[in-house]
Every structure is written in C-alpha cells, then in structure tokens.
Nucleic acid binder design. Structure first.
Length: 229
DNA sequence: CCATTAACGACTA
DNA sequence: TAGTCGTTAATGG
C-alpha cells in the first residue's frame, strides 16, 4: 500500500509563532463555492495552500470534456510544481466555500529560506503526488471503470482525514455527482450509475438521501480492490 | 466491458 | 424556464 505521507500540511510541525510569521506573507483569501481560482487564462501563483474547504483540479480535453485530476482538501496544496506544469492548461475550482492562501515565487523562496526544512517537506509532497498519479495511471490503463472508482474512493478516504465514522463506515468528505465521478475516472455518468448501484448492493457503498455524501466500507472496498473484476 | 446516443422525470439556478 | 442530474435502454465496438 502506498503511504500518503505527503498529504500532511506543508507547515505541519511548525510552532504557532512560526505560523504567525508565515501569515504575514501568505494572505488568506476567502472564496465561495464554484470560484475558479486558477485557469490557463489566468496568471497563476506558484503555490496555493488550502486553509479550509476543498478544491478540484481539472483540465479540458481536446474534445471539450472535463478530466478531473485531483481533489484536494484542508491542508493540501497545489501549484506550479505539484500540479501545474508550465504550458499545461489546468483549472482549479472550489467545491465549497474555501479559504485559499496564495504565494508568489518570491514569497515561496522567502519561506524556504527562513525554514529550509520546509523544502524537504515540499519534496515529499511532490513525490507522493507523483506516486499517486502513477497509481491512477495504472488503473486507467488496465483497470475497469469499477476498479477506477474503487481506487478513487480509497484514495479520497485515505487523503482526507475522516471527521467522523460509523463503525467500518467512513463518509467521503466531498459532495460529488455521478458526472464528477465519471470525470475523475475517465468515464461517463451512464456507466458510473449502474456501477455505483452495484457497489451499494455489495455493501461497499452507501448513500443517505439525495444531496448527501457517500459512505464507504473501507475493508470491503479494499477487498474488492484486490479482486480481479 | 464500455462508450455513444437518446430520452425522460426530477430537481435546481 | 433552461440547464443539470440520475437512470434506463438500444446499439455497436
């Protein structure tokens, strides 16, 4: 199993005083749900840090379809090196009201200069992100849509600390439509719908109400992931 | 197994 | 009201 160490805050481990100092050079910006905070048509900063809320990173393929590359939550970061390669059009949109802090390269250099150990953490984050991408690539290439969905759920549950849980059942922290799930697994919603219903029948997935988050049964999910379907 | 196309009722901005 | 969402079904690769 891959460890997602990287998902810890870049600044985790710093004292309150040190965090206070950082606040001076990392202005906080409150953004309502649905705000595009970065796009190929905007001049983007080198580093965005999610203080609260969640953000979806996606690109538009040549035939106009959205491909979601990642979903990030509180404490996660994205930007030039972690997910924006120069010249590659990527979008970042808030999935809920979020507080995002932005750093330009000057500020980032300053922070690294003041706290060199942050550079190491930064490398860990970038490395783990690469690992994650490679894992997903494997499923995209050789796995069924079913497996891609299972992998995605597992990834999300791993990446986001569960705020609460009901025995073996863990809620997914992000509200997602079938459309978005399809976009994240290189599929379409007509394919995703029956698979989700089947996962529910198998007791792997559960959904309360309409506009409510999914719950997953971690052990069953992981068992299903190692099967050959 | 899965994408595409079409279509429909329900819901929502 | 127009657009989005979940769902089903037919078809073809």
């Amino acid at each position: 199993m891959v460890t997602y160490l990287s998902r810890v805050d870049l600044f985790k481990g710093l004292s309150e005083d040190e965090l206070q100092q950082l606040n001076h050079i990392t202005p906080l910006e409150a953004r309502p749900r649905g705000t595009v905070i970065a796009s190929p048509y905007m001049e983007h900063k080198v580093l965005y840090i999610i203080k609260s809320g969640s953000v979806r990173l996606y690109k538009i393929t040549e035939d106009g379809k959205e491909l979601t590359l990642d979903i990030l939550g509180t404490g996660h970061l994205f930007g030039e090196i972690t997910s924006f390669r120069s010249g590659v059009p990527l979008f970042a949109v808030t999935m809920e009201d979020s507080v995002i802090c932005e750093m330009d390269s000057g500020q980032f250099r300053k922070v690294i200069a003041e706290k060199p150990e942050l550079a190491l953490k930064y490398i860990e984050i970038v490395t783990a992100r690469l690992q994650e991408t490679e894992d997903m690539l494997e499923y995209m290439a050789y796995g069924s849509v079913r497996k891609r969905l299972l992998f995605l759920f597992n990834k999300l549950v791993t990446k986001f600390p569960a705020p609460r849980s009901d025995g073996e059942w863990i809620p997914l922290p992000i509200e997602m439509t079938h459309q978005e799930l399809a976009s994240m697994t290189g599929s379409i919603r007509e394919t995703v719908t029956p698979i989700l219903n089947q996962l529910a029948d198998e007791g792997i997935l559960r959904k309360e109400g309409n506009r409510k988050p999914y719950w997953i049964q971690r052990s069953r999910l992981q068992a299903a992931l190692s099967e050959s379907k």
